[in-house]
Amino acid sequence: MTDKVRWGILGTGKAAKAFATALKDTPDGQLAGVGSRNLATAELFTREFGGTAYGSYADLVHAADVDLVYVATPLPVHYENVRLALESGKGVLCEKAFTVNRRQAEELVALARANNLFLMEAMWTRFLPALAEVRRIVDSGEIGTVRQLHADLGFKADVGPEHRLLNPELGGGALLDMGVYVLSIAMALLGPVESVLAQADFGPTGVDEQTGVLLRHSGGGMSVCSCSLRARLSSELTIAGERGHVRMNTMFYRTQTVTVARADGISRTVPTPYLGNGYVHEVAEAQRCWRAGLVESPGMTHADTLALMGLMDEIRRQIGLTYEADQSMTTKENP
């Protein structure tokens, strides 16, 4: 085994560049190569970040000097790209949302487990110091038994209908792009969901442009979550008990401060800086798990991902949002 974990990146977009940047700040990780459907695009990427350029995804995942693959392609092709990497014997870190629906996620998890390969959803919020501090404060009992969580994430998307945020063919919509962050952290802090109520507003392209969700968790807590492509929301998360609350400040999914406010009037703000651009923490966790021969991370388990995908499937059922991947699954089940 080499001293550094060698990464291959599928895709050359915004997330891929953020990940490559994080690798520069991760001492035991390095970029081995990047794969694109266009060799010239891959070469442009490697001129900036290093590594070998590959003109196809298949060439990258079969490269002998690649240990782990980061999938940063558009959501609708996550399933086929992750499957390609797993079938090539590579461990995978896949950008959120993990897949379009739970059925796709189940197949990928089963494939990874059958072949003893590492697989993790790249939910970077799960590994940031801010969330660890919130957990510590809640576990200390300082705010009492947790009863409610409120979280939102949203901005006005000034983009055209062809943009990935609004294009149904690219998995567009507020829920899968931003709601996934809110729901994931709500489940991380309050536990499994036993019931859900959802409503949404749709735009001209047929995707949800804002969605609101009320969750009841099996532990007895309740969370109110919303996401929007129409409004600049506060994008904060507050978790509250009978003796006070903890707030992950704007933007909660990458916040570097946490504020505690107690019922007795005492409050404080705790610095929670992260390394590099924030991706470093999930990179380090993926590498740790891969080196240890694990198939999943205890910080973002397969069960966590499947529960989250199942929850979003139910929300989409309630609001009436479907994608091509859902229809192809139905066709397979009902020939």
Rank of each mutant, 00 (worst) to 15 (best):
A122G: 07
R113Q: 15
F127V: 04
L131R: 09
Y79P: 00
E95I: 02
Y54D: 08
S36C: 09
A40D: 13
V71F: 00
V82A: 14
Q30F: 01
T41M: 02
E48W: 01
G50S: 07
D59M: 02
H78G: 12
V69I: 15
D139V: 10
P27A: 13
A53G: 09
G8Y: 04
P76I: 07
P27K: 13
R136G: 11
L117F: 06
T26W: 01
R83S: 13
N116P: 01
L31W: 04
V61T: 01
I143W: 04
T21V: 08
D139E: 13
A64N: 14
F118L: 09
T26K: 02
R113F: 05
T21A: 11
V5C: 07
A22Q: 01
R135V: 14
T52R: 07
I9C: 01
F98I: 11
Y57T: 00
N38F: 07
L84E: 06
F49W: 09
L131D: 11
R47P: 08
N116H: 15
Q148V: 11
N116I: 12
A22W: 06
Q30R: 00
V5A: 08
K17D: 13
A97K: 01
E48V: 12
G55I: 10
A42R: 10
H78I: 09
F98D: 03
C94R: 03
A16T: 10
A32E: 07
L68H: 03
I137G: 06
F45L: 11
D25A: 15
W7T: 02
A110T: 00
A53V: 13
G13A: 15
R126N: 12
E80P: 08
M120Q: 13
L31I: 00
L111F: 04
A16P: 11
T145Q: 14
L131G: 00
N116Q: 14
V34P: 01
V34T: 14
L149G: 03
A32K: 06
L111K: 09
K90H: 12
I137L: 15
L84S: 06
T21M: 09
N116A: 15
F127C: 03
S56G: 07
H62E: 14
T21F: 06
L44H: 01
A32L: 08
R37H: 13
A105E: 13
V100H: 11
V34G: 03
